[in-house]
């Protein structure tokens, strides 16, 4: 799901790193938003809503809407559309408000 050839843009050399989603290993580009790495791996469900447990994905991709909140390295409610990916991150699909304590 990554763009290879584009008539206007060139995507420069990208350093791949490994992270986990609910324990499963995934590769992404270092420094790209976590959500971009997940979408590139065709993973679109990031979160389940608090009340009706509905699946939620990206909506705005620039940190405005909070549709993409996930638990990252144990910290809940991280906006993964803007949080840069680093090697070894443990990302989890968040249920509702996440576990704060």
């Amino acid at each position: 799901m990554r763009i290879v050839n584009h008539p206007i843009l060139t995507f420069l050399e990208q350093k791949m790193v490994t992270f986990t989603l609910n324990g499963q290993k995934i590769e992404g580009v270092a420094g790209e938003p976590i959500a971009a790495a997940l979408y590139a791996a065709d993973i679109k469900v990031l979160h389940h809503s608090h009340k009706n447990h509905r699946p939620r994905g990206l909506f705005c991709a620039i940190g405005n809407c909070s549709s993409c909140l996930m638990t990252v390295d144990g910290i809940p409610n991280v906006r993964v559309c803007t949080e840069p990916l680093r090697a070894g991150m443990a990302v989890e699909i968040q249920e509702g408000k996440g576990k704060i304590l």
């Binding site: 799901m1 990554r2 763009i3 584009h6 843009l9 995507f11 580009v29 790209e32 938003p33 971009a36 979408y39 590139a40 679109k44 469900v45 990031l46 699946p55 939620r56 994905g57 990206l58 909506f59 705005c60 991709a61 620039i62 809407c65 559309c81």
Partner: peptide, 18 residues
């Protein structure tokens, strides 16, 4: 999931190449 704002689609494709 899969329903986006148009700007989100632009960010994914044109900034991140996804």
């Amino acid at each position: 999931p899969g329903i986006y704002g148009a700007g989100a689609v632009q960010t994914l494709m044109n900034v991140h190449g996804v």
